[in-house]
Design a binder for these strands. Structure first.
Lengths: 110, 110
DNA sequence: CTGTATCCTGATAGATACTG
DNA sequence: CAGTATCTATCAGGATACAG
């Protein structure tokens, strides 16, 4: 087993928002901050900024600043970020096959 | 995307110890409590008991009490628990392929 | 529009000691 | 041997306000 690789990878997808951001960016290239904020509704301004920054640090997301006024910044998945999608899909699929729908909580986003 | 299935599945493998227990039980059928405790060294007595209980509740592990004196209890993965192994492997494999070894922390168990 | 700083709360992990 | 109870430390998530 590779517990450390597991932990390191989990670090990247763990938490309430990371995969949701991953899927958002995967579905919508050139996403802007406030668009993301709007699309992921109950997320907090601060948390979104925090999570995105962590994903940038991890090399999953790249930030493109247009240096315009008013501020214009776009986010995209890097190759590394894209390569994570199939991994997350496997997790979702297992849940889909093995988790009783009645156990699932309220839909947060879909 | 299936955020809820993802969250529900993550719930089962999240945390510092759950996959390690999963791998331990996968590699050694009929594991006993103190054997697990010894094999997973820095784990705490309380934490191990807690995590196992959660995995039993989730249907991943089954407990077999031999009703002997001194106490003799064995743990095994259920089918559901076993089916989680390939999922966890995918995560480990991605880490193996994408994470710089220098970023990895000390080996906890291997 | 994009980002940072403060403060608060709940969940998780761990040290330690006790019970049948 | 197997399991529970207490208390404490740490961290992720969130509410809110402020700044370039």
């Amino acid at each position: 087993m590779y517990a450390n690789e597991f932990d390191a990878t989990m670090q990247l997808i763990r938490g309430k928002w990371k995969i949701r951001i991953l899927y958002q960016l995967n579905g919508n290239e050139h996403s802007r901050f406030n668009t993301l904020e709007r699309n992921m509704k109950p997320i907090t301004h601060k948390i979104l900024a925090e999570q995105i920054q962590q994903m940038i640090d991890a090399g999953l997301v790249e930030r493109h600043d247009f240096h315009e006024q008013p501020l214009h910044v776009e986010y995209n998945l890097t190759k590394k970020g894209q390569s994570l999608i199939p991994v997350v899909d496997v997790i979702c699929d297992w849940g889909l096959a093995n988790i009783d729908p009645s156990e699932l909580k309220e839909t947060l986003c879909d």
